[in-house]
């Protein structure tokens, strides 16, 4: 990985983000069989959430203003994905001790308010987020029918104003995966809230 090499060449003891190699395009979802508790009380894994055409894994939470700004779009894309053959799982890896708004009860409330029809689950150790190398919320990982990562990054290019979005990165990637096409823009970035990982045990 170029980025990691660049870091070590500079002799930099880089922070959390670079400690774990982030998932690369083409990789399979790590820790895909770990069961996580969803807002409806069910325990399910990424593998169980997978769809025939692909799987959308999103790291999210309740408290983050960037999540809130995108939340209606998260609900609409997430609710629409199964009709495209894409399974959805939205994962909250934040330590609720740091952000009480991110606890399970608040997740249930948010899912109901926003009409989430997809599982919104608790990464109770934050280890799934660590294994992905996820750093922030919201952060999207889309896998194709073969389980390979074909898109990672942002939902679109304007968190603040849905009306001013020019590039619907995730919507386009979902359409491509659903049609079995190559995803055109495969990696994007956006500012987000740092995931507050639970302390490693």
């Amino acid at each position: 990985m170029n980025k990691v090499i660049a870091v070590s060449v500079l002799g930099v003891a880089a922070a959390a983000a670079a400690d774990v190699a982030a998932l690369s395009l083409g990789d399979a979802a790590p820790m895909a069989t770990v069961k996580m508790k969803s807002v409806d009380g069910r325990e399910l894994s990424i593998a169980e959430a997978a769809g025939a055409k692909g799987t959308l894994v999103m790291f999210s939470c309740n408290h983050c203003p960037y999540v809130k700004a995108w939340e209606d779009r998260i609900a609409s894309l997430g609710n629409g994905a199964p009709a495209q053959g894409v399974g959805v799982i939205v994962i909250n890896a934040n330590d609720p001790e740091a952000y009480p708004d991110d606890d399970y009860a608040a997740m249930q409330k948010r899912a109901q308010e926003k009409g989430f029809k997809f599982p919104y689950v608790v990464d109770a150790t934050s280890d799934v987020a660590r294994a992905f190398g996820a750093t922030r919320t919201p952060e999207v990982y889309l896998f194709d029918a073969a389980g390979k990562l074909v898109y990672k990054g942002a939902i679109d290019d304007n968190a603040q104003d849905a009306a001013k979005v020019q590039h619907r990165y995730l919507a386009d990637a979902l359409e491509a995966v659903s049609a079995g096409r190559e995803v055109a823009v495969r990696e994007t970035k956006a500012i987000g809230c740092s995931i507050k990982f639970r302390s490693a045990r």
């Binding site: 880089a14 922070a15 922030r136 500012i191 740092s194």
Partner: peptide, 30 residues
């Protein structure tokens, strides 16, 4: 994000250190 440093994921806070010649020498998130 990429204009400041492609290593930056977009997570905040992000901190960058430049030496006296203006060369980026250190970067971290958190």
């Amino acid at each position: 994000i990429d204009g400041l440093d492609p290593r930056w994921s977009g997570a905040l806070p992000a901190t960058f250190v430049y030496d006296r010649s203006g060369t980026l020498r250190d970067f971290w998130e958190g």
